[in-house]
Simulated assay, not measured.
Amino acid sequence: MATTASTVPDTKALDGIHQQLQRRDLLPDEHYLDSGYPSADLIVASARPTASP
């Protein structure tokens, strides 16, 4: 869970949330959120595995 200002789209908070979940080995198989306006770049980036810290 992350709390942001109402003007911050969910997609802007997603990277930080995923990094925290990955550090705890808790990444979900699927992650649902309301992006408002998804982009092709966002969809491609979210499908890529992230590098381990």
Results as ranks from 00 to 15, higher is better:
1 M>L: 13
2 A>T: 09
2 A>E: 08
3 T>N: 03
4 T>V: 12
4 T>R: 04
4 T>A: 11
5 A>I: 01
5 A>K: 08
6 S>G: 11
7 T>N: 12
7 T>H: 09
8 V>L: 01
9 P>F: 01
9 P>L: 02
9 P>I: 01
9 P>A: 04
9 P>H: 02
10 D>A: 13
10 D>R: 05
10 D>Q: 09
11 T>V: 06
12 K>L: 11
12 K>V: 11
12 K>N: 11
12 K>Q: 14
12 K>P: 02
13 A>Y: 00
13 A>L: 02
14 L>V: 12
14 L>W: 02
15 D>W: 05
16 G>P: 03
17 I>R: 01
17 I>D: 00
17 I>E: 01
18 H>G: 06
18 H>A: 10
18 H>I: 10
18 H>E: 12
18 H>P: 00
18 H>R: 14
18 H>T: 08
19 Q>D: 07
19 Q>C: 02
20 Q>T: 06
20 Q>V: 06
21 L>P: 03
21 L>I: 07
22 Q>N: 08
23 R>V: 13
23 R>S: 15
23 R>C: 10
24 R>H: 13
24 R>E: 15
25 D>M: 12
26 L>N: 10
26 L>G: 07
26 L>I: 10
26 L>T: 08
26 L>D: 12
26 L>V: 10
26 L>R: 14
27 L>K: 05
27 L>D: 04
27 L>R: 05
27 L>F: 07
28 P>F: 06
28 P>V: 10
28 P>L: 11
29 D>I: 07
30 E>L: 12
30 E>M: 10
30 E>Q: 11
30 E>N: 07
30 E>I: 10
31 H>P: 00
31 H>A: 08
31 H>T: 09
31 H>S: 10
32 Y>I: 14
32 Y>A: 12
32 Y>N: 09
33 L>A: 04
33 L>F: 14
33 L>N: 04
33 L>S: 06
33 L>Q: 06
33 L>C: 06
33 L>T: 06
35 S>W: 05
35 S>I: 04
35 S>E: 05
35 S>P: 07
36 G>K: 02
36 G>S: 06
36 G>F: 01
36 G>E: 06
37 Y>Q: 07
37 Y>V: 05
38 P>E: 02
38 P>L: 00
38 P>V: 00
39 S>Q: 04
39 S>A: 01
40 A>V: 10
41 D>W: 08
41 D>Q: 05
41 D>K: 07
41 D>G: 03
42 L>Y: 04
42 L>V: 06
42 L>Q: 08
43 I>K: 05
43 I>N: 00
43 I>M: 05
43 I>D: 01
43 I>E: 04
43 I>S: 02
44 V>S: 13
44 V>Y: 14
45 A>G: 11
45 A>F: 13
46 S>M: 10
46 S>T: 06
46 S>C: 08
47 A>I: 03
48 R>T: 14
48 R>E: 15
48 R>V: 12
50 T>M: 14
51 A>S: 15
51 A>C: 11
52 S>P: 13
53 P>R: 13
53 P>E: 14
53 P>C: 13
